[in-house]
Design a protein around this nucleic acid. Structure first.
Length: 270
DNA sequence: TGCTCGATTACCT
DNA sequence: GGTAATCGAGCAA
């Protein structure tokens, strides 16, 4: 049962990052989020991930940001107060989660790209394998996950085992492991009682970072075609849970078939 | 209203 | 390494 303020793996109550933590530029918040623990306490159980990779999106000044073109129904949460979860749907089948930064009206956010599952690994594995949460038997949830059926079919097709390192390695995988979708859009990660929250790094992580044993890598963001020169991606150097960097590649056109006549060379333009 | 593209992933060769 | 899957958002006409 969701308690809103879940116990950690050692039974203690989790501490949430304060809202002031997010009331800064996304480029300042992003590296500080590395090592922090994001959790979702759903009806099916608690899953928590230690963040190892994030990206900063800087609002109207950043052509790669969803808020670059102004406020819409989709990105409205970005324009609100800091510490809220902004979840969007992309590629027809994936969800990605962000944490909103800066005060209302300054739509900056940090994309959560990858993490290490530190609690609820069994539940996360089942979700990643395409199984629906047993507790999520309401019809809205059942149909509210576009692509879920595809994923389930694919995962079930060959029963390929999901390696623990791959459970939350990638923004969409992270969302799937934590069962985050558009129904979590707009949740307050800082509010006591919220099913989604984020806490500070473990003592070991804090020590390692402070002592310089753990360093932070920076580089260009993944999968974007604009503002590719800005090194606003941050990760824990050497961590095996960091996703694989793939520069964006222009896709060939996918024009729908035209009845009667194709193009000269037979290729289907988009 | 129709078209294009996308902050991705899994599968196949 | 290449590509299919899949559909919502945003833009142009």
């Amino acid at each position: 049962m969701p308690s809103g303020q879940p116990a950690t793996t050692n039974g203690q109550q989790a501490t949430r990052l304060p809202r002031e933590f997010f009331d800064r530029a996304a480029t300042e918040v992003a590296p500080d989020l590395l090592g922090c623990v994001l959790w979702h306490d759903s009806p099916a159980g608690l899953v928590a991930a230690r963040l190892v990779e994030v990206e900063a999106y800087m609002g109207p000044a950043d052509p790669a940001s969803h808020s670059y073109r102004g406020q819409t129904a989709r990105n409205a949460v970005m324009f609100g107060p800091p510490g809220y979860l902004y979840v969007y749907f992309t590629y027809g089948m994936h969800f990605c989660a962000n944490l909103v930064c800066q005060p209302p009206g300054q739509p900056e956010a940090v994309l959560l790209r990858a993490g290490e599952i530190v609690a609820g690994a069994d539940l996360a594995t089942r979700r990643r394998a395409g199984e629906r949460d047993p507790a999520a038997d309401d019809p809205v949830h059942e149909t509210g996950t576009p692509g879920g059926g595809v994923r389930a079919a694919r995962a079930g097709a060959n029963g390929r085992a999901i390696r623990p390192v791959d459970l939350a390695r990638g923004p969409a995988r992270l969302c799937q492991a934590l069962d985050i979708d558009r129904s979590q859009d707009g949740l307050d990660a800082c509010a006591p009682g919220s099913p989604v929250g984020i806490g500070p790094p473990s003592a070991a992580d804090q020590q390692a970072l402070a002592a310089g044993q753990q360093t932070i890598g920076t580089g260009p963001r993944v999968g974007i075609s604009r503002a590719v020169d800005r090194p606003w991606r941050y990760w824990l150097a050497g961590d095996k849970h960091v996703s694989i960097y793939r520069p964006v590649k222009p896709r060939p056109s996918r024009r729908k078939p035209v009845t009667g006549r194709d193009t000269e060379d037979g290729t289907m333009l988009r």
